[in-house]
């Protein structure tokens, strides 16, 4: 499916956003990229660098409602509470399922290391077994607990693993009235593409707040895979934050809608929340 960049009011009202955009630091009005002429395209690497350099708080807590909608419109709903904290360069994320009852108390923990050559560590608590399972982080392209986001998407939030792609800025564009840079990302190797499940990604990155408002994914065979839109972007504690993410999976016709609430940055979070014991105890 080709991305729609029509700027009519109706369409632009619902269009365009990034990967798992959650948050983004605001840019100052004197940003040199914004000030430059549209034809002076920044390099893809520099755009991605700005996306990844966004301040997104040392800690983050938020509630997340997931809606999973199949091709016949049947809807499933999950409610979670998530926590994220930076330990230096290392990012730790914990997600606790609150409902529905049949998956309540399931919990997911990941340690995302800054070193590109170090695999992340991931754990999943399964209440039916009452055990924390160590799970491989290498199959990053697997879909996360029934959603249309992959484990990699969930882990990176709105950021992009720069080491996995080559980038090229295609053009400047406008999404919902916002100036964006359209950046193409191509996996650096077939092996990485297979791991990620993506053969090509195109991002419509807001040139002011450095969030991708729309992201198109193709699979490793070059077929359209899914479209992610980041919506309801608002500033919280000085950090631009997307409160709604929508994914349309073109091959399965499955949809996922993430709605974030109670988003709070830089609250004090106990380090012990990011441990196996905490997964077992739950919230």
């Amino acid at each position: 499916m080709k991305p729609n960049t029509n700027t009519s009011p109706i369409r632009t009202a619902i269009l365009f956003v990034p990967l798992l955009a959650l948050s983004a630091a605001a840019l100052s009005a004197s940003d040199p990229v914004i000030d430059s002429r549209p034809l002076d395209l920044p390099s893809g690497e520099s755009v991605v660098e700005r996306v990844n350099a966004r301040h997104d708080g040392v800690t983050l807590t938020r509630d997340l409602t997931m809606k999973l909608i199949d091709r016949r419109g049947k809807e499933r709903k999950r409610e979670t509470r998530g926590f994220r904290k930076y330990f230096g360069d290392e990012k730790r994320t914990a997600i606790f399922y609150l409902s529905p009852n049949n998956i309540r108390d399931t919990a997911f923990l990941t340690y995302d290391y800054a070193q590109a050559d170090r695999d992340d560590d991931q754990w999943l608590y399964l209440p039916a077994l009452r055990k924390v399972r160590r799970i491989s982080a290498s199959d990053r392209g697997d879909y996360f607990l029934g959603t249309d986001f992959t484990y990699e998407d969930i882990k990176k939030e709105s950021k992009i693993a720069a080491e996995d792609y080559r980038f090229r800025t295609l053009r400047a564009d406008s999404v919902d009235g916002h100036t964006v840079w359209v950046v193409e990302a191509t996996p650096i190797s077939e092996e990485v593409a297979k791991e990620l499940g993506y053969g090509r990604v195109v991002l419509w990155v807001d040139a002011k707040i450095w969030i991708s408002r729309l992201t198109e994914f193709w699979d490793t065979r070059g077929e359209p895979l899914k479209t992610t839109r980041s919506l309801e972007i608002r500033e919280i504690d000085g950090i631009w934050t997307s409160h709604r993410l929508e994914v349309d999976h073109h091959q399965t016709e499955h949809r996922t809608i993430f709605t974030f609430s109670e988003v709070q940055y830089d609250l004090e979070i106990d380090d012990n929340l990011f441990t196996e014991g905490s997964l077992r105890r739950g919230l």
């Binding site: 695999d119 560590d121 991931q122 399972r133 160590r134 799970i135 491989s136 982080a137 290498s138 199959d139």
Partner: peptide, 8 residues
């Protein structure tokens, strides 16, 4: 427990 690539 530990992971090695695709394996745990």
């Amino acid at each position: 427990a530990n992971t090695f690539g695709d394996l745990t």
